[in-house]
Design a protein around this nucleic acid. Structure first.
Lengths: 142, 142
DNA sequence: AGAGCGAATTAGAACTATTCCAAATCCACG
DNA sequence: CGTGGATTTGGAATAGTTCTAATTCGCTCT
């Protein structure tokens, strides 16, 4: 499931919270991520954004993605060699990587599971976030 | 905990299993990984290996690491932008990434946990492996 | 409305990690 | 001991990302 859709004001506020401005470019980049939640690379985002805003540069796409990550509207996903991917789903979830197709699916995580996993940490370790990645095959999904 | 130390014969056999030869370079690279289990990058491995075998090339280090990954003596670890890291610990374990120091620690995983985590997968998903990454701070470790 | 000013954007250069390539070398087998 | 396939090597090439310097944008303060 997608995160709650942000109003333009809430979006601007999230940026303002960390001292950044809202800009048309940042809105469009965020819009593109929300529209199709498939963990695109920066390059893929660039291609999609250019359809709405043909003058945008790749450097700006990187800048916008970084801004969105900073203000916690987007998460970065790095589970293999190769380009970083971006994920606007903010609910607690794991990623399932289908090795046959290369597709990535979000797996919702019930509250309990993260606590159970967190419990394996020995004394002295304090985790701020937990990331879980499955690899395997997914039968006829999407 | 480290994986059980391989005998040279068992090491050669693992390679042979997938149709690769043993070579001095591959032994040295593996030895370096076993000696200091700190998730080095290919470059770091290269530096360490050169002390024992000054003529080795970086391309060969990449080749050897790839060979070791193929025959499952080493795991690749990719949890952030930047160079791939290599891990010779084959026991089921998670990784804890200390954001303050950049250090990575292995966290042993009791059997039950992986099963519990696996149970969150909806019908149709079949996971061959599960990777768990913690991020946070570790008090006075190592 | 206009000036000033820091933030954001842009294009392209630079950089890093990795892979590719072609030539030289090694090694197992007949 | 010669042949063939695998491996190693150094350098060139590539992919993804970050950096840089110049321009533009858009508040804020008159």
């Amino acid at each position: 499931m997608a995160a709650i859709t942000e109003t333009p004001e809430a979006f601007a506020q999230k940026l303002a919270d960390i001292g950044l401005r809202n800009t048309p470019q940042r809105e469009v980049v965020y819009g593109v991520l929300m529209k199709k939640q498939d963990h695109p690379t920066a390059d893929e985002v660039y291609v999609r954004v250019k359809q709405e805003m043909p003058t945008i540069s790749l450097a700006t796409v990187y800048n916008c993605l970084e801004a969105l990550v900073q203000c916690k509207l987007v998460r970065v996903v790095n589970f293999e060699r190769g380009p970083t991917r971006y994920c606007p789903n903010l609910n607690p979830h794991a990623h399932f990587h289908d090795e046959a197709t290369g597709a990535t699916y979000d797996i919702d995580l019930p509250d309990g599971v993260l606590n159970q996993v967190n419990a394996v940490l020995p004394k002295g370790y304090d985790a701020k976030s937990i990331e879980i990645i499955f690899r395997g095959s997914a039968a006829n999904k999407r």
